[in-house]
Write a protein that binds this DNA or RNA. Structure first.
Lengths: 222, 222
DNA sequence: GTCTATAATCAGATAGAC
DNA sequence: GTCTATCTGATTATAGAC
């Protein structure tokens, strides 16, 4: 279809741009996971990417936009994971089937939570600022982010309602409370406290958090 | 015993000083709960207390010390609450007996968690910065804070072990993981998310968080 | 000890050459 | 688009009079 050189060259340049911006969001993602939005400085980002600070501002107009782009990327990764889980088993890639194809809604929620914890332990989960900040306002104003968030929430919400119908999730809990409880695992300080204590492996930490999240602290006789 | 005027006058001045510093820590406590350490500015504190910023620095040498003092105060409040719970029922004040004198270790842990959530919803729970910051270092270096923290942890830890012996808390969970899980309730974003949604009363929010914390998300047949 | 005024620093953002 | 050098504003902290 494209026979002239110009479009190809443009496409190449566009690819380079995209790759550069990908490198930036990756760094931001990591720093956001490590230190959070407030503690992360634009100088650090520039240093880690290996370009000048002014160059960063050619790609993104503010620190908030920078973080926003990273959050949108993370959201899209989450969305891709959820869609893999949703897809019929025959079409699933290996990535989506760490445990034997989770059929029930509860198992899908568990698989998602486990995936979140793994990401967090790998230092790839950009954490939302729990307190109000300029970032929150930016995120709220970002269509791509809000669309992604609503999409994710819809999918998880449907599984939650289904799991309650299945008699797996406590029906006395409003679905929104269950959803927030799952979201909260992505910024659970327990994970990093346990990691810092160096008493347990990542796998053990995940198992413990999964247990407290779904089974609670109290003993289960059933 | 003290017959001269000088000691009395000094005691009065000391009382005034203490009252002033109490007013400061109260303000810091509230602001720390509302915005967190990074977002809180010393100017705000001075404005809320009603004194000049320079005067603040006569009482505390740095922003970290300021926050540290507030955290220590909160820790001592927690300690007082735990000691009330521990005291024999006959000596308990009304404060410590919101629910019919919690006898079992599990009930004591529940009462403590509930108290934490109430404090948080009242905006009086200064939240630790989840990410590394200058504050963390200051807290670690503060003897009063670390002593208080260890004291609190010891008391809670004893109840956790007892509750596991009683067959109330899942014995497969290391006590330290249970302890962190309880601590995490003090900075649980679920609480503020639910509060922001304005769909539930404070009492309902507390019940839901208590339920997910102790009983988990999964339904209980027992 | 409290105040006003100011220093010192740091971080987000920009100018302008190439 | 990338760079170096700089501006700007906010914030912690202090000097010095009273």
């Amino acid at each position: 279809m494209t026979s002239s050189l110009a479009p190809l060259k443009k496409s190449f340049k566009a690819q380079m741009l995209e790759a550069r911006e990908q490198a930036i969001t990756d760094s931001v993602n990591r720093l956001l996971s490590e230190k959070g939005f407030d503690a992360m400085t634009v100088d650090e980002v520039a240093a880690e990417v290996g370009i000048a600070k002014a160059s960063l501002y050619k790609h993104f107009n503010s620190k908030e936009e920078l973080a926003c782009a990273a959050m949108v990327q993370a959201m899209q990764k989450a969305l891709a994971f959820l869609e893999e889980l949703q897809a019929p088993p025959g079409l699933q890639s290996e990535l989506a089937a760490p445990t034997q194809s989770p059929s029930s809604a509860l198992n899908k929620l568990k698989a998602t939570t486990r995936w979140t914890l793994e990401l967090k332990l790998a230092g790839q989960m950009p954490t939302l600022p729990s307190h109000n900040s300029t970032l929150r306002a930016s995120l709220m104003a970002s269509r791509p982010y809000m669309d992604g968030l609503m999409n994710v929430s819809d999918k998880l919400g449907a599984w939650i309602v289904q799991a309650q119908k299945d008699g797996d999730i406590n029906p006395a809990l409003p679905p929104i409370a269950v959803l927030y409880t799952l979201y909260a695992r992505a910024c659970d300080p327990v994970v990093e406290f346990l990691k810092m204590s160096e008493l347990h492996s990542n796998e053990e930490i995940i198992e413990m958090v999964m247990s407290t999240c779904f089974d609670g602290l109290k003993i289960r006789k059933n």
